[in-house]
Amino acid sequence: MGNEVTFNWGGDDRLNFAFLLEALNDWAENDVVLVLDEAQELVKLRGADLLGPLAYSYDHLNRLKIILSGSEMGLLYRFLKIDDPDSPLFGRFLGRIELLPFNRENAVEFLSTGFKELKLPEIDYDKVYEELGGIPGWLTYFGYTYYETRDLQGSLESTLERARSLIAREFSNFLRGREITRQRYYAVMKQIARNGCSRWSWIKTALEAQAGTAISDSEIHGYLKALMESSWLTKDEGGIVRQKLSSEECFQVAKT
């Protein structure tokens, strides 16, 4: 089952993050890689300074390589404060890799390559893209499920069910602390879910219809900014707000 190490972030025996990084660096004979997954959650950490130790590691711990990964890049960048002159990480070069959803061509190539590596027969990759969209994680999960079952429709349904469950849980987590405005966030997502995109004016109309009262532009801006920081929405050059995730059905049937 593997090993598990837990750290205490509070109290007298709290973890000294800088000491941990130094210990890893001293232990490594060559390079050691420390991966902090879903690192945007660190923005919620109170009473602990992690940016200082990260900057110290960048400058002095040559054998330690740190990877910060996350599904909510806006929050991750807000945590790192890389554009803030007062941040310990300001001015330091950070390599960035952003994995966006595949378009149809890339999704088909991704699936085809994986199926060939596993010596699986060709399937209707376009159908998979139509059902699942281009999220790499969902395409990977589908491929694994199909490898185990050899059932195309069953694998699609299993992947969609898992995706809906994950989206519902993640959106519920996003709404924590936003109970008062919960209905409005759902109204935004449902408006966009109707066709995968929407304009500012349409969102404003939908919100005001749901609330039964006028809503200021600044309030709407706040809702959209929060959703974009958490990677639920993005915006194209034409100013249209779009969902990054292929989660339309989840919000069409969501109970509020």
Rank of each mutant, 00 (worst) to 15 (best):
E4G: 10
E4L: 15
V5T: 15
T6H: 05
L24E: 14
A28I: 13
N30D: 15
D31H: 11
D37M: 04
E41K: 02
K44F: 10
D49S: 07
L50V: 11
L51W: 01
S57E: 06
Y58H: 12
L64I: 11
M73W: 00
G74W: 03
R78M: 08
L80E: 03
L80H: 00
K81D: 04
D86S: 11
G91F: 01
L99D: 01
L100D: 10
P101C: 05
S112Y: 01
G114S: 07
K116D: 14
L118I: 07
Y125N: 06
E131P: 00
G137V: 02
Y141N: 06
Y141A: 14
F142V: 07
Y144D: 10
Y146L: 10
R150T: 07
L156N: 02
I167P: 00
N173E: 08
R176C: 07
Q183I: 09
A187P: 08
A187E: 02
Q191A: 15
Q191M: 11
W200I: 14
W202Y: 12
I203K: 08
E208S: 13
A209Y: 05
A209R: 14
G212D: 11
S216K: 10
H221M: 07
G222V: 04
Y223K: 05
A226W: 01
M228G: 07
T234Q: 02
K235E: 15
G238M: 09
G238N: 14
G239V: 12
L245H: 07
S246Y: 04
E249D: 09
Q252H: 09
A254T: 03
